Simulated assay, not measured.
Amino acid sequence: MTAALVASPGTSVLADDALLAEWDDLADRVGAGPFQRPGWYRAWWSAFGTSSVRLVQVRREGRLAGVLPVTRRWGRVTTLDNWHSFLCGPLAEDAATRSSLVDRAISAAGLSADLGHLGSDDAEHVAALAADRGCRVRRSMIQRSPYVPLDGTFDAYRSGLSSKFVGRIRSRRRKLEQSGELRLVVHTAPDEVEPALRELLRIENLGWKAEQGSSILAQASTHRFYRSVAGWAATAGLLELSLLTLGGRAIAGELALVDGQSHYGLKMGIDPGFRAAGPGFILAHDLIERSFSQGLATFEFMGSASEDKMRWTGETRCIEQVRLFPPTVGGRAARLAGLGETAGRRAGTVAGRLADRPVRAIGAVVSRGSRSGDRTPQTGADGPGPAPS
């Protein structure tokens, strides 16, 4: 088994068709989700990428056994992810291969390495391996993402929801149906994508999202990303673009990836003119029902655990980031620089609180802090132990 970091200028490493075919084959073998496939990373990099992509590879007898795309700039290694990502991390056919990928990424990091959007098992593995290699490790929660386990039947699942919530959806559906035919139209064919996507983008750009600049159309990079994702996913047979129509007019829609195991809701849009009628809840209800009928394992809401999403489920996935600092002079300097920034922010907060206090009150606070400091052992930012010098 050999591990290598392949560096290519620009995005050429994501343009090697033979390599990408091997990558997709590996994803098929291990049952990976769409967010670890080369098509997803190509779309992501075309929208958000800078510098050059480097590909950590592990091969067994010439066969691709593991892959992890990263960037390396000024001694910092980072994975290709942001708030539009879901579960990423090392793609490997076994634990030994995953360890080799992480080892190679660590060895390429002169100052630090950030591995983001990891599931809890991956985060635990990466953190433990890095600690064994002498790295200082910081593990943090990015978000808790709600999902519905699709066990049993849809009727049994719905019976476990709040009867008041389900009754409200039924009454809103009946009220909308008084104005016209209410239909769920799901587009999957590549030739259907463009007009349906335009309609979804129009709806998603209405109301508060447009006002806050958080819609897909608000930023050119985000627009380019989701268009690229839709094009790739439609060709790969992973796209479901759903529109809830009333009398032929779209009033809500969702862009999703569906891979035979899970439904991943990437983006949803609602016409604010119909918000009081709850088309988003009706759409979610019908899509969950559809996912049950497709025999999927989970319905993934994605994003954070908002109150509206948690009406449907009590389950969430922990999505984490692991930041590690190698046992080098550069790694120690990078960690201490981060501690300095944190201390500076804390000092600024304390200064702001004290700014308007009388001098005597400030003296009392400083005096109390000095006395408590004499009694309290020092603690480093990474856990108990001596404070960094």
Rank of each mutant, 00 (worst) to 15 (best):
D25M: 03
L206D: 00
G253R: 03
L55M: 15
L91E: 06
R174P: 00
G338A: 04
Q294M: 06
A123K: 09
F154Q: 08
A3V: 13
F225A: 03
L80S: 10
D271R: 02
F165C: 05
V365L: 13
G363D: 13
Y157Q: 04
G231P: 03
A334D: 09
A32I: 01
W40H: 04
T349C: 05
V13W: 05
G373D: 14
G62L: 10
A105R: 06
W40G: 11
V322Q: 08
G330R: 09
L239W: 06
R63N: 12
H84I: 00
R345W: 07
P272Q: 02
D24K: 06
Q378C: 11
D191A: 11
V53K: 02
P69H: 06
G260D: 02
S179W: 06
D103A: 15
F299G: 10
T2P: 02
R345Q: 11
V229Q: 05
A333H: 08
R59L: 01
R72S: 11
S306Y: 07
G207H: 01
S100M: 15
F86C: 05
H187V: 05
A297M: 05
R174K: 14
G363C: 10
A189E: 14
A305S: 14
P69E: 07
K175N: 07
V70L: 15
R158S: 13
D81G: 11
H263C: 08
S99T: 11
V366I: 15
S179N: 08
V166C: 10
V77G: 10
G338R: 04
T11I: 10
A130R: 06
